[in-house]
Computed example of a mutant assay.
Amino acid sequence: MTTLNMRQKLMSYLADADDSKIKAIYTLLAPNIDKESEFKLTDEQFAILEKEREMHLSGETKSYSRQETFEIIRGQRSF
């Protein structure tokens, strides 16, 4: 059975399952669900972000307001 078939069967089952079964399945899967929703940067990503932040604070790079960004995207302004 493919994972697509498994997903379809599970969704169909869950749509009609009684509350106690939903709670049991959720309890079983909750640790995985919570982990997937966490957002974490790698050390490399964090280092890049920190370097760009320092460049911004020192004035080495330019920042744009939200409005300026929209104008650049729409071609109404150059950067």
Rank of each mutant, 00 (worst) to 15 (best):
I25L: 11
S20T: 15
K21R: 13
D43H: 04
D34V: 13
N32W: 10
F39D: 07
F46R: 13
T61I: 09
S12Y: 07
S58Y: 05
T61N: 00
G75W: 01
I25Y: 00
A17C: 07
D43R: 07
A24W: 03
L49S: 08
I73V: 09
L4M: 09
R66G: 11
E71C: 00
K21E: 15
E50F: 03
S78N: 09
A24G: 06
Q67T: 13
K9D: 15
K62H: 02
S12R: 12
G75S: 03
L10P: 03
Q8D: 14
E60T: 02
T61K: 04
P31M: 06
R77W: 01
M55T: 00
I25K: 06
I73G: 04
E52C: 06
R74P: 02
I25T: 03
K23N: 11
R53M: 07
E60S: 04
F79C: 06
L57M: 07
H56V: 02
H56I: 05
R7Y: 12
A47H: 05
A30I: 08
L57C: 02
Q67V: 10
S12Q: 14
T3W: 09
F70S: 08
Q76G: 05
M1N: 07
L57H: 00
T2S: 15
K23G: 03
S65T: 14
Q45R: 05
D18V: 05
L29N: 10
S12L: 12
Q8F: 09
T61Q: 00
K21Q: 15
A15N: 13
L14V: 05
Y26I: 12
R53I: 01
Y26A: 14
F39Q: 11
S20M: 12
M11H: 10
M55F: 04
A24V: 05
F70D: 08
D19S: 10
L29R: 08
T27Y: 07
G75N: 02
E38M: 12
E60Q: 09
M6T: 11
D16R: 12
I73F: 02
M6I: 10
N5I: 11
K21L: 12
T69R: 04
D43W: 00
F79W: 08
I25M: 05
F79K: 12
L41N: 06
L4Q: 14
D19N: 10
Y13N: 11
M6P: 00
E52N: 08
E44K: 07
K9V: 15
K23E: 14
T42D: 04
N32D: 15
R74D: 11
T2W: 00
F79H: 08
K62Y: 01
D34E: 15
R77S: 07
S12P: 01
D34K: 14
S20F: 08
R74C: 07
T3R: 11
K40L: 13
L41S: 06
T69S: 11
T61Y: 01
K23F: 06
I33H: 06
Q8K: 13
D16I: 10
K35L: 14
N5V: 11
S63L: 02
